[in-house]
């Protein structure tokens, strides 16, 4: 891969970490402001794309562990389904933690109940899935050329 200019790489390296913070902000405040699980997870998954631009495939493949994103995916889906099944005495997806507006002040879990928790769970799942898709595709395209990770002279500072 031809090396990009140093400006592009530095800006991508800088912005990647801000993308994580912004994505977590969108994710955690999904029940108050626009956003939610899917949007926040997609924003966090942009981190991997920025890292691929900033450092190149070889260093990202040596630093980033796939097991972490596997864990995100599994934990997110399991928490989502468990929260859905916990409302089963009434119906599937019953919001058993919700409180009406009059008494919803305070507390560790906000008054929306499972909406906030499911938002975080789906955000974890989307983060893991999209990051794994990008990482796996970027690593797997070398399968057809039958070569190892290419040296990528310009990216490794």
């Amino acid at each position: 891969m031809n090396p990009l200019s140093v400006v592009v790489r530095t800006v991508c390296d800088l912005f990647a970490w801000f993308m994580i913070v912004f994505g977590v902000n969108v994710l955690l405040h999904g029940y108050v402001t626009p956003g939610g699980g899917f949007q926040g997870g997609a924003i966090i998954a942009t981190f991997i794309a920025f890292l691929l631009v900033a450092y190149g495939g070889r260093r990202v493949a040596s630093r980033v562990n796939d097991r972490l994103f596997d864990l995100f995916e599994e934990v997110g889906l399991l928490v989502f389904f468990i929260l859905a099944f916990l409302g089963l005495p009434v119906t599937f997806f019953f919001n058993f933690l919700a409180k009406p507006l009059a008494e919803s002040a305070g507390g560790f879990i906000p008054g929306v109940g499972t909406v906030a928790l499911m938002s975080v769970a789906v955000g974890l799942e989307v983060t893991g899935a999209l990051s794994l898709i990008i990482l796996t595709m970027h690593r797997g395209i070398r399968m057809f050329r039958g070569e190892d990770l290419e040296p990528e002279t310009g990216h490794d500072r």
């Binding site: 626009p34 997609a42 924003i43 942009t46 794309a49 990008i134 595709m137 395209i141």
Partner: peptide
């Protein structure tokens, strides 16, 4: 529709561009 706008900006302008470029390289 700010929800859809956030999703569209992240998915359409960010991730799908990455996936397309990776595929073109392959």
């Amino acid at each position: 529709a700010p929800d859809v706008a956030i999703a569209e900006a992240a998915i359409g302008a960010g991730l799908s561009t990455t996936i397309f470029i990776i595929t073109i390289r392959a």
